[in-house]
Amino acid sequence: MKLAALFVVILTGAMLIYAGQDLPAFGDSESPAYQHRMTQYFIENAESESGVTNIVTALLANYRGYDTLGETAVIFTAGMSVLMLLRRREL
């Protein structure tokens, strides 16, 4: 079992290392992720469109606000699930 696990893990690691050769370099400002118009748009427009200086907050609550709603729903789900599993009294 342990050997099988090790095999799977090493396989995954090999995949990661294989892919790693083509990943953009660390801290590279030319990386596709940074150069994509999306990133630049956020940096330029966050304050004028959302009125906040923290770009992360602007993204979190405005541009990608829907993700955040989903994420809050995840939290809520976890709360509900644990409640259901470990509830000590009748609700």
Binding site: A19, Y34, Q35, M38, T39
Partner: peptide, 26 residues
């Protein structure tokens, strides 16, 4: 990391140019 976008359609437009990238395969 290799496309810089999260939108599926946008991604599909960008991906064909970098199909030889090992990251895409991974």
């Amino acid at each position: 990391a290799v496309t810089g976008t999260l939108n599926m359609a946008d991604m599909q437009n960008i991906l064909p140019t970098i199909y030889d990238n090992k990251v895409v395969l991974a």
